[in-house]
Amino acid sequence: MLKTLLRWIDIPPGWLALSAGAAWGLDALVPGLGFGWGWSRLVGDGLIALGLGAMGLAFWEFLRARTSVIPRQVPTAFLKRGIYRLTRNPIYLGDAMVLVGLILHWDVLVALPLVPAFAALITRRFILGEEAGLIAQFGDEFIEWASKVRRWL
Rank of each mutant, 00 (worst) to 15 (best):
T87P: 01
I135R: 15
P13R: 11
V69I: 14
F118E: 05
A120M: 10
K148C: 04
W8E: 15
W145F: 15
R124F: 14
Y84W: 02
P113G: 07
G94V: 03
I91T: 08
P71Y: 04
A28M: 03
D107Q: 06
E131H: 13
S68D: 07
K148E: 14
I48A: 06
S147V: 03
G38Y: 08
A54K: 03
M97Y: 06
D27I: 02
L57W: 15
H105L: 13
L153P: 09
S19Y: 02
I70P: 02
D45I: 14
R88Y: 07
D140C: 02
E144A: 15
K80R: 15
I143P: 05
A146L: 02
F35M: 12
R85F: 00
G101N: 13
F62S: 04
R150H: 11
W24D: 01
L114K: 06
V30I: 12
G25H: 05
S40Y: 01
W145I: 04
L57D: 12
L16Q: 00
P116K: 08
A54Y: 09
G133P: 03
D140M: 09
P71H: 06
L47G: 07
Y84A: 01
V43R: 06
L93V: 15
Y84Q: 02
R81W: 07
Y92A: 13
L102Q: 07
M55Y: 03
Y92G: 11
V69H: 06
L18G: 01
A146H: 08
W39S: 11
G46N: 08
R150D: 05
R81F: 01
